[in-house]
Design a protein around this nucleic acid. Structure first.
Lengths: 211, 211
DNA sequence: AACCTATATGAATAATGATTCATGTTTCAT
DNA sequence: ATGAAACATGAATCATTATTCATATAGGTT
């Protein structure tokens, strides 16, 4: 019986509802986009509901028509972002010649995505301190998809035998930090250079004499 | 002219001061340890100054005797943690036979450190949203040390040629995520398994046929 | 037109918690 | 012993803000 339920015979005077008309959908969307902007630029705690509704061009109370509170909007944003990013990656990885190629294409797509959605990064990281379960959910979902791909590649003999779960998280960490440093903080190293370096690392490792 | 200055002829009625006696040092330390505990378990925003001083066993006002505010204590903690961690790693990496061996020893030491200091992780991550400059400073400092080591190893012919700055951040990211997932969230994969996997990855890459 | 539901509004509420400061206590050099 | 500096105290201040709710408007159906 969450605050979000919408059973037919609901007695609650008011509460967050799913929009039922086009007007409602539009308003909810405006608020969500405004929340993204505000959380992204001001941060979760700094951003007030008034900031969000002012930016959205709606009244304060309208926020609570569609979200049960500030946390709720944050959660929704993270889920939405996870969905969008996964779709973007799947699209860009299609057509890879082998698993490492897929990794590298995925990395490039990821870096480009961060560059084009700089707020996503901040919101995703900050949700860790707002609702940790959602943060874990995000990465666990990601990890599940990933693990399947790696295990298929191993079965196909493309990868060296090894613990793919560990590799999985190592690869996510690489992407995360490369995105933070080279897409978000400073774009001082050309994308191709990053990709080339990582391609070499994933194909041959770091060590020179390889035996 | 920061609030923290302690010039001789200071006219400010009161303000944060460096402790000048043994008693003062002890109190300041008690408060800092309490802040670590509170920020770590409750989170920065949830933790109140009253929580910190209650836990430390001192009066509310004493907090402001040694710190200019909540943020100041957070900053101090992060700097302290960075210093301690770097010392711990340097100690554990000494005696490595080659650069990859050093990487792997460093990773093990890092994972052990996180396991033994579970709060460090949360505090470091959360400072990103409290004072981003301190967060960057932490990683930039880390990165500087790291870059020197990698470039020396390259000069010595131990590493394949490549962009060490990119590798640098990729390696930090790996460590970060492996620590989060396998030391903090769930300790369901034995340390040796993690180390073996990463040793293989760094020595040979992911791809099976290596040409 | 009458009516019902969904949607929109924003002033008022209510709780919180960081910071200040006037006052009291301890320490220690002389 | 004594005075001054360092240290400790916690009630009071002050500002901030998430959330509620009574009321008003819009859209569409009969």
């Amino acid at each position: 019986m969450t605050a979000n339920e919408q059973g037919a015979g609901e007695t609650a005077i008011q509460g967050p509802r799913k929009p039922k008309t086009a007007r409602g959908k539009k308003t909810r969307a405006k608020i969500l986009r405004a929340a993204e902007e505000c959380f992204g630029t001001l941060g979760y705690h700094q951003a007030g509901i008034t900031d969000i509704t002012r930016y959205a061009g709606v009244a304060l109370g309208s926020f609570y028509s569609y979200f049960s509170g500030k946390e709720d909007a944050m959660r929704e944003l993270v889920r939405e972002m996870g969905y969008n990013l996964r779709a973007h990656l799947a699209q860009n990885v299609a057509g890879a010649t082998d698993r490492v190629d897929a990794e590298v294409r995925g990395l490039r797509a990821f870096l480009e995505y961060i560059r084009d959605h700089p707020w996503m990064y901040r919101i995703l990281q900050e949700v860790q301190f707002v609702d940790e379960a959602v943060y874990r959910e995000y990465y666990d979902t990601f990890s599940e998809h990933y693990a399947r791909l790696l295990s298929e590649a191993t079965q196909a003999g493309e990868l060296r035998p090894g613990n793919n779960q560990v590799r999985n998280w190592a690869l996510m960490g690489m992407g995360h930090f490369l995105g933070m440093r080279f897409a978000l903080w400073e774009q001082d190293v050309p994308m191709d250079e990053i990709i080339k370096t990582m391609d070499d690392l994933l194909r041959h490792g770091l060590a020179r004499s390889d035996q």
